[in-house]
Write a protein that binds this DNA or RNA. Structure first.
Length: 103
DNA sequence: CACATGACGCAAC
DNA sequence: GGTTGCGCCATGT
């Protein structure tokens, strides 16, 4: 596992319940602002059993992965909603309210 | 080794 | 505000 990926996982774990982080955000915090893609790749390659809330990691548009990534988009939406993440009428996440703001 | 693809982001139109 | 194009990095063929 690369150090970068490890940081991504750690950051994902740091995301509090009810909040979400964008790929670019994690990438920036990991030290590579332009490497947002690698974040997604890292999530995809994320090891199971590490309690990594990959569902809390979304894109800047407030959208979740296509669907084939998790069980389904609906499932993930329900999961996030259960955690307190605010969703807009269009089915996307209200980033303005739910985006994780690290201290 | 070169090319194409992908859980993305941002600037430009 | 939606769509298009380009950039960045890692992986697979």
């Amino acid at each position: 596992m690369n150090e970068f990926d490890e940081r991504i996982y750690k950051l994902a774990l740091l995301v509090p319940k009810g909040n979400v982080a964008s790929y670019g955000q994690l990438a920036a915090m990991a030290g590579k602002p332009q490497n947002s893609r690698a974040v997604g790749r890292a999530m995809k390659n994320a090891p199971s059993g590490h309690d990594i809330p990959c569902h809390r990691v979304v894109n800047q548009n407030g959208e979740i992965a296509p669907s084939h990534v998790f069980e389904s988009k609906k499932h993930q939406r329900a999961m996030l909603e259960a955690e307190g993440v605010v969703f807009k009428s269009n089915g996307k996440i209200d980033m303005k309210k739910s985006q994780w703001k690290p201290l």
